[in-house]
């Protein structure tokens, strides 16, 4: 029994020692977190990076949403903080301030491509041909009718426009922790509200309230990822969900995509700028970690290389919409030039 006691004491001591040893050991794996839209792309690049560069370890890619990732990114400089934050929108001024306040002064923005945001419904259901104004009318708590703001009276899609199916309005949209939500808000709802023509004489604040207050009874905000949105559609086939184009691409057998302003979302229409609801994708690199964390610079160069994020590259096959190669060259040059 005594030996057992001594053994346990030794083990505890050893564990404590191991803990202190951790401080001394330097991290040799790139740590990434952030947007769940960028996650699949970043994971693929991480794997390919690990396979191509035998001298570097495979980077670790976490999720947590754009906001969560940037928060982690801005928590400071050092080995226990992440090196790269994936983002499906650009960093906000407030986030940049928080970053700088925590000592993260060298932030390098990398834009690497585009993603489309699509409306999709169950493959068995009717076709949808939507416009931003129709979506606004379906989703807003108050809508303008004859120049007056009234509580949203629409029950079926066909009440909004006779061309839409006679199906109850049900929407599953990304929660506010997702970067997708902001693009959806800006490019669809706000654009739709403007087109619908809000009554004259509304203050900016009231306008914003109309544009951002959604009907609680028919709109579900999904905090998780697209699989959760898909589960909504499966349980209630009347739901129209908001997805990333790449997710839709992988699940074409169960989803049917809606056109927006008559344009079918696809790699081609988004790249050509015809499809209205798209956004650039980013990741942010902590410049202060370059040189400390091995492979960080190479990872960025590898990510932006033609065979990965270029036309016909690995990421295009996974659903990324490549950006023009001039833009990539510009981004890479800015990255290599150092702190902006």
């Amino acid at each position: 029994m005594k030996t057992a006691l001594f053994a346990s004491a030794a083990v505890i001591a050893l564990a404590a020692f191991g803990t202190t040893a951790a401080f001394a050991q330097s991290r040799d794996t790139i740590q990434i977190a952030g947007s769940s839209t960028v996650l699949p792309f970043a994971s693929i690049v991480a794997e390919e990076f690990g396979a191509t560069f035998p001298e570097f370890k495979t980077p670790v890619v976490g999720s947590g949403g754009t906001g969560g990732g940037l928060k982690q990114f801005c928590s400071g400089v050092g080995e226990s903080t992440i090196d790269i934050a994936n983002a499906s929108r650009a960093m906000k001024a407030g986030e940049r301030e928080a970053c700088v306040a925590a000592g993260v002064t060298d932030i390098r923005e990398i834009q690497f491509g585009f993603d489309g945001i699509v409306f999709a419904s169950a493959a068995t259901g009717p076709d949808f041909a939507l416009t931003p104004v129709q979506v606004f009318k379906a989703i807003a708590a108050k809508v303008p009718v004859d120049g007056e703001l009234v509580d949203n009276p629409y029950v079926n899609w066909s009440d909004i426009d006779a061309s839409l199916p006679a199906q109850p309005i049900q929407l599953a949209i990304p929660g506010s922790n997702h970067g997708t939500r902001e693009v959806f808000q800006e490019k669809v709802v706000t654009a739709g509200a403007e087109e619908a023509g809000l009554p004259e004489g509304l203050s900016d604040e009231d306008k914003l309230a109309v544009e951002t207050t959604f009907r609680q009874d028919v709109v579900v905000e999904i905090a998780g990822d697209y699989t959760e949105t898909l589960a909504r559609l499966t349980s209630n086939p009347n739901t129209v969900g908001v997805f990333g184009l790449s997710f839709y691409d992988q699940n074409k057998d169960t989803l049917k995509v809606a056109t927006v302003d008559g344009v079918v979302p696809s790699l081609e229409t988004v790249a050509a700028g015809e499809y209205p609801v798209s956004r650039p994708l980013f990741f942010y690199v902590k410049g202060q970690h370059i040189g400390t964390i091995p492979g960080l610079e190479e990872y960025v160069q590898f990510f932006l290389s033609d065979s990965i994020s270029g036309n016909g590259g690995t990421l295009e096959a996974a659903g990324l919409i490549p950006q023009p190669s001039e833009k990539t060259a510009e981004v890479l040059a800015a990255f290599e030039a150092g702190a902006q």
């Binding site: 740590q31 977190a33 994971s43 794997e47 690990g50 370890k57 495979t58 670790v60 999720s63």
Partner: peptide, 17 residues
């Protein structure tokens, strides 16, 4: 504590991701 990350390597020690 970040253990829901995508990790594409087998950890060799308890300090690896």
């Amino acid at each position: 504590i970040g253990m829901n990350a995508f990790v594409a390597s087998i950890p060799a020690t308890p300090l690896d991701q």
